[in-house]
Nucleic acid binder design. Structure first.
Lengths: 218, 218
DNA sequence: AATTCACGGATTGTATACAAAAATGTCGAC
DNA sequence: GTCGACATTTTTGTATACAATCCGTGAATT
């Protein structure tokens, strides 16, 4: 037995929610979950509280925890906020990035390119993660970095979805290169604009995807 | 007995920490706190976890919870991030703010002015809160608004401290008016710059305050 | 004398038991 | 047949009991 089962349960629950096992609005019963994970209610409760603070579930006093997937409006807001946060990172990074990190960025981008050329979306996704993580870090502000990673992680499933749209990979690649060029030149404003656009277009794509799904359902 | 004692305890604990009752690095013993609040360990534990996620305490597995006040470096980072977040809000608000909200902003600023003229720092502080809250809200992005309020709240004690510095009120007032003027004109870039500077200078002041305290202690 | 290992105390993590409140189902009145 | 009050049941919130781990102390060994 290791120290904290509650953390493991929180992770597993998060996976199950993102996985779709627990649908939007589902009531997460403490005793059922306790039985499922073969623990008592205590660690389950702690896990639920953690998920509540990270936004995946909503806890109503004396009523329980419910799965709370963000709606279209909230998602648009989160994508917009992500775009703005990344823009800030880019602007700060433009003057603070180290040569080594800049080399890493070029490397990540090169890997993205090969992934794109082979049409390997999964690999593109991973290298893209690295690309953005480097920029977060090179902003030179730990708090900002943390927040960016948190939001990035939260948007992960929705971001992934629209990477498979036709031509998105190539477009994304071109945007990356604009960002790198701006950082190379040390042009903060340009880097901010390029990265903001790069992320904002993801929100746009997602928006359209939602709209098309909706109209198809009618 | 009402529904959730854990939340009350979390609030009280937060107050006690910010109050200085529990100093930096202090070990928060669960049984002691349980005795102090006349409850069992269970709600105390839940409160501690909440505070851990909000960053006021650090929880080490199997070792307990310790008061974790942000150090100088972290504070500088938080002030910088606050400046950037508020700048984003200002830029977005410049094109989205409603006429009613703009009127509110003018009103809040007017109240700030009278508070400044009477030298009432407490009142200035309250009206200043309102000023910033309006801008957060008028950014038209709920997620961003929430984050800004969260960080603002976290910086509250440190911000308050340096409002009493000589001449700061008048300077702050002038900065406010630059922000309002830019928003009046619908100039997003100018509003962003003005608000960023307004918040960044607070970080600067704080930095100097820390430095002076340090050198005085030697 | 320094180091290592063992053991006891203290403290966290988990399980279970109990209390209180809300959801649900039943019965009756209109 | 529907609405509403009351009892039952289910579920959350809290208290307590138990288990596992960490820390310090101290003695034994090199």
């Amino acid at each position: 037995m290791k120290g904290r089962r509650a953390d493991d349960i929180a992770d597993q629950l998060e996976a199950l929610i993102l996985d779709g096992t627990f649908a939007e609005g589902a009531h997460l019963d403490e005793v059922q979950l306790a039985a499922r994970f073969e623990v008592s209610r205590t660690p389950v409760r702690e896990a639920l509280q953690r998920l509540a603070q990270s936004g995946l579930v909503e806890q109503l006093p004396r009523r329980g925890a419910f799965v709370r997937q963000p709606g279209p409006v909230e998602l648009i807001e989160m994508f917009e906020a992500m775009a703005e946060l990344e823009a800030v990172c880019a602007r700060l990074a433009a003057t603070r990035i180290s040569d080594a990190a800049l080399a890493d960025l070029h490397d990540a981008n090169a890997r993205c390119r090969t992934a794109m050329e082979t049409g390997d979306t999964d690999r593109y996704y991973r290298e893209n993660e690295r690309f953005h993580a480097i920029i977060y870090r090179q902003a030179g502000n730990g708090w900002l970095q943390q927040e960016c990673q948190r939001l990035h992680r939260r948007l992960q499933p929705f971001r992934r979805m629209q990477l498979r749209l036709r031509g998105r990979l190539r477009q994304s690649m071109a945007e990356h290169e604009a960002v790198v060029a701006a950082l190379d030149a040390g042009d903060g404003a340009a880097a901010a604009d390029a990265l903001r656009a790069h992320v904002a277009v993801q929100g746009e794509k997602f928006h359209r995807l939602i709209a098309s799904l909706k109209s198809a359902a009618e």
